[in-house]
Simulated assay, not measured.
Amino acid sequence: MRHSKQTTKQNRGLRLTLTMVLLMAIMVIQACGGTGGNNGANASAPPPAAPEQPSGADNEPVPAAKKVPEKFTYLFVGATGKQSGAEGWGFHTGIIPEVLAQYDIKESVALGGGTGPDINEALLAGRADVATTGDTPQLLTRAAGNKTKLIGFTVTQNESYLLGKKNGVSTVKELEGKTIAVVKGSIMHRYVVGLLKENNIKANIINMGWPDSYAALARGDIDAFAPAAYDYTSYRMAEEEGYPVLDRGIDHPPLLGTSVTVAREEFLNQYPDFVEAWNAARTAALEDLKSKPDEYYAYISEITGTPIDVAPILYPIELIADTENSEQGIERLRLAKDFLQEEKLAAGDFDLEQWIYN
C-alpha cells in the first residue's frame, strides 16, 4: 500500500509538470505569431492597414515647381506713366498681373518714364528686371557688352516719315545740301540715312529732340524733320497746319523699325520660366484689347492726348506684334544693327541669334 500511494503521488506530479509545460508552449506560440492558416494573425484582430500611396501614383511624374520670381519690376518709355499696346493695356486692366499670379508671380511693378538709355541704366544697375523700348537703345547696349536677352517684340513695323517746312522743298530729291533734324541713333535716324542713300542725296543731318525740331521747323531753321508715325504733334502739323509730308517710311519696308522687350540675362538665368509666364500674360492682354477696340482707343486717347478719332490712325491695333519671336522683326533688327555699326554708333558687334532668348 505504501508503494502504491507513493506511485500515485509521483504520477500526479508528472501530470502537473506536463500540464505546465504544455501551457507554456501555447503561450510561446501565441506570442510569436504562430504558423496557422491565417499567417499567424489573430483571427479576431483587424487586418493591417494598406501602406499610404505617395503622390503621383500610377507612375505619373510630379510636376516641378516653376522657377519664377515672387516680384519683378518692368520699365517702359512713357512720360505719362502709361503705355500703349498689349503691355500697357494688360497692366491698365490688371490682366497681366492676374495671369502672372497664376504662375506664382505675386507682385509685378510697371513703371514708365525716361528714355531708352535711362531704362538701360536702371536694368544694368539691377533696379529693374524687364523693359520695353525701341530697338536702337537695346542694340546699342548689347553691342557695348551689357548682358541682356531679347524676349519678344511689341511692334515690328515702327514707321518714321519726313516732314518739311512750309514753302520749302516739296520732294526728297530737293533735299540735296539741305538740313534735316533727327534724334541721333534712333529709328528715325536710320530711316533718313537709308532714304538719302536710296536717292543718292547728300544732306546735313543734325541731332535734335522733337520739341526743338517743331520750333526749328516753324521758324524755317531746318528744312525737314523726321518724327515717328505715332507722334500727334507732327500729325497735327501735317494734317491741320499745312506742313508737307515729303516721304513715308511705310514705302521703304527695310527702313522700318521695331520695339522690343528685353530682360537681364542674370534674371533669366535665375528664373528660366519667367518668359513662359510673361508670354501667357501678354497674349491674354492682347486678345482682350482686340475684343474691345473702342475701350482700347479711349484708353490711348486718355494717356497720349490724341483725339479719339485720331487714335486708331496713330496707334492701330493691327500693328501690335502677336508673336514672341517674329521673323520679320528679327530681320529688321539685323538691318538696324548693321546700320549702327556702319555709322560707327555701336561700340562693338555681337551675335544676334545668341541675343534672342530660347
Rank of each mutant, 00 (worst) to 15 (best):
E324I: 07
E331M: 09
E331Y: 03
Y315C: 02
Y315H: 13
A321C: 15
D322C: 01
T306M: 04
L319M: 14
P312H: 01
P307V: 10
N325W: 12
A321W: 05
T323Q: 14
E324Y: 00
T306D: 08
I303Y: 13
Q328F: 00
E331K: 14
L333C: 08
I313C: 00
E324G: 00
E318I: 08
I317R: 00
I330Q: 09
N325D: 03
I313A: 07
N325Q: 05
N325C: 01
T306F: 04
I313K: 14
Q328C: 01
V310T: 13
E318H: 12
L314E: 06
T306R: 09
P307C: 11
D322A: 05
I313E: 07
I317P: 03
I308T: 14
T323Y: 09
G305V: 11
P316H: 07
T306I: 08
I330N: 12
T323P: 00
T323C: 02
Y315N: 13
D322M: 04
G329E: 03
D309I: 00
E318F: 03
R332H: 12
T304N: 06
D309N: 14
I320H: 05
Q328G: 12
A321R: 02
V310H: 06
A311F: 06
D322V: 02
T306G: 08
I320T: 13
I308E: 15
S326Y: 00
P312D: 06
G305M: 10
Y315K: 00
D309T: 04
P307K: 08
A311K: 08
P312C: 12
L319H: 13
V310P: 02
I320R: 01
R332T: 05
A311C: 06
L319I: 11
L319Q: 14
I303G: 11
E318M: 05
Q328D: 11
I303F: 12
E331Q: 14
T304L: 09
T306H: 07
E331F: 02
E327A: 14
I330C: 01
D309H: 09
I320Q: 12
T306Q: 11
Y315L: 10
P316Q: 10
D322I: 02
S326N: 13
T323S: 10
P316A: 03
I320V: 12
R332P: 05
